[in-house]
Write a protein that binds this DNA or RNA. Structure first.
Length: 564
RNA sequence: GCCCCCAUAGCUCAAUGGACAGAGCACAGGUUUCCUAAACCUGCGAUGUAGGUUCGAUUCCUACUGGGGGUACCA
């Protein structure tokens, strides 16, 4: 149950009744819980329009809604609401009944959303730089699915473009057998080429002409390209497997090779393109132009991204297309979206670029061209091995088999890296440092995982039959109150996190939940509480906390081991 | 040069225009005859600068300073 929308509705009705004004009231949680569970500022908002004192208006609204809601008025005109004990306890029981589906909703019923995420470049190692797109994208995918959208994930692999010309040029020069090349070899070739190209800019023309051949369908060139793609995909699969990421489709840029002419002519027919310096470009009022066709006749990723939109519309008819792609491509997507707009593709449709900040070095951007990257594989391995050490040193690790310890270390190590990423607001840049990536305490995945295992351990030892929240003791001064006043917010948080494309909100929520549970745990006995009724209540709260942690971590794509 | 993003405690991060800016790390101290001490409790500390809008600004607007990114045939 989402209390928030109910409260909104009641206020809306009351305002309409009293003042004949249609308003969408802002309802939020007061920062101080003494002020109640929810509050609204409508009285202050209305004060201007009604030319009256906010406090008087607040009192009137309070009287109008007091039948259905417990309210207070506070200066300078807040109306505060308090949830009843029945409602709070009822929610705990609902969590325990609904279990894994608690928090899901039908908000997105009948709507389709495409999430474009991960999109690593073929022939390059999977670097930490691609962590953000992959992890945030997957979390958004999970969130939208959970709140009722039909969700489609598409991994727009970077498997086309002049970068392949670069590679083809190098492979041809070195006379190496493609089949024997590893991704490391390929990346080295890429780096070498760009070093040479800095001294001899004409080399880039050579690369471009190789890509042109690829795009024209030259058989030998295509064979080499295919071999390169296969080597890369193998490495990517390993990483995805470790990350527990599974993306519905991976059409990749090469898929659109044959769909380019149709898009180009559609742009021409609308009169949106013009010739310039041998190339064909699309101009904008407030942005630099984008290249539709290069002067040698080959396409660019601008063209391919247009073709991709067209395909996705024809195939899935989505209402939202979310691009989880780095902020360095902001201009590109503005150009693509603006063009799609002019082509009338955006009717009843929304294109969103979730421009995440870059993972960078203190000194600047990571660059594959200059060989300045860090392999994600190294980071994950390091994190897992640190977690393994922790499991080994832990008191609770006793009695676990070596295999169990390995599994826990993997869940904790990988979870730590993922959570590190997710807990930052997508927009913020992340300065890479080996130490900060492996946070195992405080606001971290291991802390949440520990709390979850701890709660399960209590439930495991319970002596009562069924946990149930039926106690009617006043809650205000009780150890349970902070948890009861937090648990019910989970469904709201999911809506907010999805609507604002910010999984970090879910991280903050879960962390606060875990903190409240750990305080509760340290404060009062659960199994040994006085009296059966209190035991049942505390066990019910423990079960509900575990359930919400489990559901939340699942949405973030983080494993929750039952023991650690 | 022009465009976009960012600036919060010593460090790393939170906060749909609301009430006293909230955590973690680090630092100082404390807690285990009791359900997992990977925990808990106490303390220390912050909105880059100058204006503006508002009953109210970390949040919106303007300028400045500092950092990052982009800016035609890479993606």
């Amino acid at each position: 149950m989402v209390f928030k929308s109910e409260i909104k509705e009641v206020i809306k009705e009351a305002v309409k009744e009293l003042y004949q004004i249609d308003i969408d009231p802002v309802v939020e949680h007061p920062a101080q819980e003494e002020h109640g569970d929810y509050s609204t500022n409508v009285a202050m908002v209305l004060a201007d329009r009604l030319e009256r004192k906010p406090l008087d208006i607040a009192e009137e609204i309070k009287d109008a809604v007091s039948k259905s809601l417990r309210t207070d008025v506070a200066s300078p005109g807040f109306i505060n609401f308090r949830l009843s004990e029945e409602a709070l306890l009822g929610e705990v029981n609902r969590i325990n009944e609904l279990k894994n589906s608690y928090g899901s909703s039908d908000t997105g019923k009948g709507k389709t959303v495409v999430v474009d995420y991960s999109a690593p470049n073929i022939a390059k190692r999977f670097g930490v730089g691609h962590l953000r797109s992959t992890i945030i994208g997957q979390a958004l995918y999970n969130l939208y699915s959970f709140i009722g959208y039909k969700t489609i994930g598409d991994n727009h692999l970077g498997d086309w473009g002049t970068q392949f010309g670069v590679l083809l040029a190098e492979i041809k020069d070195s006379k190496a057998k493609v089949e024997d090349l590893t991704v490391d070899d390929l990346e080295k070739m890429y780096v070498d080429f760009h070093q040479k190209a800095e001294k001899d800019p004409q080399l880039m023309d050579k690369a471009r002409s190789w890509f042109k051949k690829l795009e024209e369908g030259d058989k030998e060139v295509r064979r080499i390209w295919k071999a390169v793609v296969d080597v890369s995909l193998k490495e990517f699969d390993w990483v995805y497997d470790l990350l527990g990421v599974d993306i519905d489709y991976a059409y990749g840029e090469s898929f659109y090779g044959g769909k380019m002419p149709a898009v180009i002519s559609e742009v021409r027919e609308r009169g949106l393109s013009k010739k310039s310096a041998g190339a064909e470009i699309v101009e904008f009022e407030d942005m630099p132009p984008a290249i539709l066709v290069k002067s040698d006749g080959a396409t660019t990723y601008f063209t391919r991204d247009l073709a991709t939109i067209k395909f996705r519309i024809d195939e899935w008819d989505p209402q939202i297309i979310i691009y989880e792609v780095g902020a360095d491509q902001t201009l590109h997507f503005r150009q693509v979206f603006e063009t799609a707009n002019k082509l009338s593709w955006s009717k009843d449709r929304e294109f969103v670029h979730v421009a995440h900040g870059l993972i960078r070095f203190k000194e600047g951007k990571m660059s594959t061209r200059r060989g300045q990257t860090i392999k994600l594989e190294e980071v994950l391995n390091e994190s897992v091995s640190r977690a393994r050490k922790l499991v080994e040193d832990s008191k609770t690790g006793k009695g676990l088999s070596s295999k169990q310890k390995d599994e826990i270390a993997k869940a904790v190590g990988v979870g730590a890296v993922k959570y590190f990423d997710l807990s930052h607001h997508p927009k913020s840049d992340i300065v890479f440092s080996w130490e900060s990536m492996f946070l195992l305490e405080g606001n971290s995945a291991p802390y949440l995982q520990y709390t979850y295992a701890r709660a399960l351990s209590v439930l495991d030892k319970k002596e009562t039959d069924k946990p149930q929240a039926t106690s009617r003791k006043p809650l205000a001064s009780e150890a349970e109150a902070p948890l009861l006043r937090w648990l019910y917010r989970f469904p709201e948080i999911l809506e907010e996190a999805a609507a604002s494309y910010s999984p970090n909100l879910l991280c903050s929520y879960l962390f606060e939940l875990a903190q409240r549970f750990n305080s509760f745990y340290a404060d009062v006995p659960i199994i040994k509480a006085e009296g059966v009724e209190l035991q049942r209540l505390r066990l019910a709260i423990t079960a509900a906390t575990a359930q919400v942690l489990k559901n939340g971590l699942a949405l973030l794509g983080i494993e929750a081991p039952e023991r650690l």
